[in-house]
Simulated assay, not measured.
Amino acid sequence: MVVDMTAEGNDGVGLRERKKRETRLALSQATIHLCVERGWSNVTVEDIAAAANVSVRTFRNYFSSKAEAIAASHLERALQLADELRARPVDEHLWDSIVRAVQAQLAPGEGNGGGSPHDQRRPDGLRLLLTEPALHGEILKADAAAQDELAKAIAERTGTDVAHDVYPKLVAAVVGAGTAVAVTHCLNADRPIPLGPLLREVFDQLTAGLPVP
């Protein structure tokens, strides 16, 4: 019997990368949860490591700071958005695929009614974290990396070259801007606004060419 060692090795690499990605996300989510619950200044790396059931050394292997750990969730969401876009039917209109992929990541299951107390506290937590000065630089870096990943997926979908064609980069930048506008609008609203329908409204206006109201 001949064993395909190359395939086996590739599976091993893929599994290791998935586990690293899962660990990064778990540490990031633990950081966000603790900072929302206790306040930015009242959370230490030791607290985060304990909450994630890992050593402080493990945390340091992945992140240099709390800010970097929090920004990692933003980047992970972008990776999942790119994966979601790649999984959409190839005959689906690009912008329909983009909107559905964005909604799947940012507003999953919205419209089912209700919502847990944790869901209802989430906007206040996001406001708190996004106004923390220590986060701004890391969020900007995560935004840039997220845009690059989405551009790659758009290039694959459209048969363009991300290194030479402006189109995939432009679409990725527009998606990032539109999503940011929708999320900020929801956070700043006087009354709760469901994010899913607002995302659809934003992208409907974009695909219509932003006609003057």
Rank of each mutant, 00 (worst) to 15 (best):
R86M: 01
L106D: 10
P108L: 10
S73D: 04
D91V: 01
L135I: 11
A71Y: 05
D148L: 10
D165T: 12
V162L: 11
P108M: 08
K152Y: 06
G114Y: 11
A87N: 07
R157N: 06
A172H: 03
S97F: 09
H185T: 15
A163F: 10
D124Q: 13
A144Y: 06
I139E: 10
D83I: 01
R77F: 01
G159W: 04
K169R: 14
D161T: 11
V99Y: 00
S73L: 02
A153C: 07
E68K: 05
A177V: 08
R77D: 09
Q120G: 04
C186Q: 14
L150Y: 03
E149I: 04
V90A: 12
S97L: 08
A142K: 01
D124P: 00
L106F: 12
L75P: 00
E156C: 04
I154M: 09
A155K: 00
P168F: 02
P133Y: 12
P89L: 05
P117R: 15
V181S: 05
S73V: 01
P133N: 02
D83N: 07
V99C: 07
E156V: 09
E92P: 00
A145E: 12
R122T: 15
E138N: 04
A145D: 09
A67C: 11
A107R: 13
P89N: 02
H74I: 01
A155V: 13
G125N: 09
K66V: 11
L130V: 09
I139A: 08
I70L: 14
L150M: 10
K66E: 03
A69Q: 02
A78K: 01
L126K: 01
N188S: 13
V99A: 04
